[in-house]
Design a protein around this nucleic acid. Structure first.
Lengths: 323, 323
DNA sequence: AAGCTGGCTGAACATATGTGCAAGGAGCGG
DNA sequence: CCGCTCCTTGCACATATGTTCAGCCAGCTT
């Protein structure tokens, strides 16, 4: 594998840049551009695709503020959270919803992340879907930090989580800080010991100084269990305990009740995710939700004041607003 | 004439917003969107056109900094000015060049102008072309201020200039402050008297506190004379005087020499444009140039340090860099 | 209420854009 | 230097998008 880099890349990139200019700023047709650049129309088509895919061309949608959907207004008023409702037809499947919400988030995320920033991200099916679509944006001196461990009894889980992290890191040109620990320790004492290791404290400190946090929601007792619950991270006994403790959901493997409280939920003692008091230090906390099976979990997360920005599919948003 | 406003408009706008989301964020095809929105594909096409035209959808091109064209680098190094080179084929006519540069500027201008800002603008064929294409952007408490008078012996010139101003004002939802005076007074004393009128001093003060200034260049002695020179603003005697005084160009009807100096150019005493010492207080001064006939004038304006941002067609940029 | 106007719609057609494929060319290892 | 792979190109076709036009409806005038 060769690394196609700066010297050669420049040429193609600057062509793409020119083509984009001619197409998007001057409204020339691809045919005309092909002529100016002495190549074929198809090449221009491909060049422009690349320009969009690599973030050279950035397409944003700016609501005139006064035209925000009434749903978003209701959610803001009721929960003090900036909602971004993703339009999705009501009859769409859960997979569709997730995919479409993830795509939207992936496209918009660049507006929240910039040079010199640190972003914490969780893992799970939602994050995975987003990671597959992130639109690149060049940043400098920026970091992506893993919020919680991903190992389990069957696999190290590293491949899965690190793949997600890596995609974000690649897209933004950011340093990636993995967190190579299991999702849950067997013994709380082990965690405490680990937390005193220097490599680990460094990472925990970064988690305490995030600019952005990005996470989905777990919903252990819904019809469509999240990745954590299907992936062999938890045993039957754990489920029973969670149920007894009244947990309705989790963020980065920290569980909470309907009222947002976490105290006394035994499993949290063994979890590797950041305590909510730490997470809440992050100024912008972006939660991505799709599918009404997450509704109970979402209400809990809102009670816990974990969320500042919420991306949510239309149907679920309506359910939230109607309740 | 009815004013189609908020109540009804909202509906169409929010549809456009949804369609834009589905098209640009979720990559649905127009057909699919038509289906979701229960309308025809053609309507979606029109809806999306409108969304782009009204600035709901904002398309930007972001060079990765390290990929700025070498031309732009040379100009920055030599003149300390941020150049934006507009690609235009060498064989293009002067009219083409002007039109294409103007279109590019019109699209990008929104990035320089925002709420609570005041922008001064000149008039002339360049500004007119830009005004015909400005992409709307909603701002609040912003102002557009006319830099120099536009009346002449034949007409009040008000229609022409005010049309330009109005287009900018409409596009940005900005207050428009016209400057209802001739381009040149016959007698310098009249100007001085006028300048003490309260209505006028208010405007002059605004000119001294601009956030952005936008102007083209006049080039009195080139093959393709600018609007000022063709529009009956100047008489033969004026030309002779300018020639004697060594003028090579003007910005907002203030003339300058090749070295950027303005002192002792008689016509300036009667002109209504802002003195360069005043203009230079504006932090961002955007100059738009197309066609190599403006080259001499451009060099003068650069010497006068009038420009912070330069939009220029490729051929002229190359000529500037090669010299 | 009839008649008019202007704006909006969808069907049909005209263009513009995306993509599979075979061919050509650069780089590399033998 | 050959033969290989991998990447890129332009052509031809498949899709997607833009635009014209006739019909319709709402709102207004008479």
């Amino acid at each position: 594998m060769t690394l196609p880099n700066d010297p050669a890349l420049s040429d193609r990139t600057s062509d793409a840049l020119t083509a984009a200019h001619l197409y998007y700023m001057q409204d020339l047709t691809m045919d005309a551009i092909a002529h100016e650049l002495h190549t074929s129309r198809s090449s221009i088509s491909r060049l422009l695709s690349q320009a969009r895919a690599t973030g050279l061309v950035d397409i944003q949608i700016r609501s005139p503020l006064d035209a925000t959907s009434s749903l978003e207004k209701v959610i803001l008023d009721r929960y003090r959270v900036t909602a971004h409702v993703v339009p999705v037809p009501d009859h769409a499947s859960d997979v569709d919803r997730l995919e479409r919400v993830a795509l939207s988030v992936a496209r918009i995320l660049g507006q929240f992340f910039d040079s010199n920033m640190t972003m914490g991200i969780a893992w799970g099916s939602t994050m995975s879907a987003i990671s597959r679509h992130v639109t690149p944006k060049t940043t400098h001196n920026s970091h992506i930090v893993q919020l919680n461990g991903a190992g389990n009894m069957r696999t190290t889980g590293l491949d899965y989580a690190s793949e997600i992290l890596r995609r974000f890191g690649d897209a933004y040109g950011a340093h990636v800080e993995q967190f190579p620990v299991p999702a849950f320790f067997d013994d709380p004492a082990t965690r405490q010991a680990f937390w005193r290791e220097r490599g680990v404290t460094r990472l925990l400190e970064m988690q305490g100084r995030l600019d952005v946090a990005l996470f989905g929601l777990g919903s252990p007792f819904s019809d469509v269990p999240s990745h954590v619950y299907a992936g062999g991270y938890l045993e039957d006994g754990d489920y029973d305990a969670l149920s007894r403790d009244g947990a309705v959901g989790d963020v980065a493997t920290i569980f909470f009740r309907a009222d947002g409280s976490t105290d006394g939920i035994a499993l949290n003692e063994r979890s590797t995710g950041p305590e909510f008091s730490v997470l809440r230090r992050t100024p912008r906390r972006i939660c991505v939700v799709s599918g009404s099976s997450k509704l109970a979990s979402l209400r809990g997360a809102l009670s816990a004041r974990l969320i500042t920005d919420l991306f949510i599919d239309e149907g679920t948003a309506r359910a939230l607003a109607d309740s």
